[in-house]
């Protein structure tokens, strides 16, 4: 019998008490024990960001975050973004801008964007680009994703829209 520990955590606002092995990552617990498969694992090395979830408001790589470390904490995943069937502004912006293709990075990208916007509700384009630096999308070339996050920002309602049309004043070029 493998060692088991009990953790108490909140997942998308719902209190959960789980008996798990210490080795289990938050991604495994979310996907395999709770059926929340929106959180994806890709690189499994904290590089790609596909598994990004929020733990007490901070973006974490669920692929390498031990579930026991979420004990006593609040975890938010993509499944918790919409409320009462209404998409969060950032989700709606992703729909409007077609800011995804295959969709495998999308959950992590949305959570990274959520953390970014909660920390900084009125980011500049450069701040959005920097804020998403750690999330890989292999399909879109990022252009519509950056536009969607700007559109979802508080400034996005008015000034942001104009800024998006203008194009990227801060595109520093390929590095």
């Amino acid at each position: 019998m493998h060692e088991l520990v009990t953790i108490e955590l909140s997942v998308n606002g719902v209190a959960r008490s789980l008996l798990i092995e210490p080795r289990e990552t938050l991604a495994e617990v979310l996907r395999d024990r709770l059926g929340l498969t929106g959180t994806k694992v890709s690189c499994d090395a904290q590089v790609c960001g596909a598994c990004t979830v929020l733990v007490d408001g901070l973006a974490m790589s669920a692929c390498t975050y031990l579930a026991v470390d979420a004990d006593g904490r609040a975890v938010r995943t993509v499944e918790g973004l919409a409320t009462d069937g209404v998409l969060a502004p950032v989700q709606q912006a992703f729909v409007d801008k077609a800011a995804f293709q295959c969709g495998f990075c999308t959950s992590g990208m949305l959570m990274a964007a959520t953390a970014l916007l909660e920390d900084n509700p009125t980011p500049t384009r450069e701040e959005v680009v920097r804020g998403l630096e750690g999330n890989i999308c292999r399909c879109t070339g990022y252009v519509p994703i950056v536009e969607a996050v700007l559109a979802a920002s508080r400034a996005g309602d008015a000034a942001g829209a104009a800024r998006i049309e203008q194009g990227s004043e801060n595109s520093g070029g390929a590095r």
Partner: peptide, 9 residues
């Protein structure tokens, strides 16, 4: 350093 998630953990 690295990315936001690594910096957070």
């Amino acid at each position: 350093l690295a990315n936001a998630r690594v910096r957070n953990a």
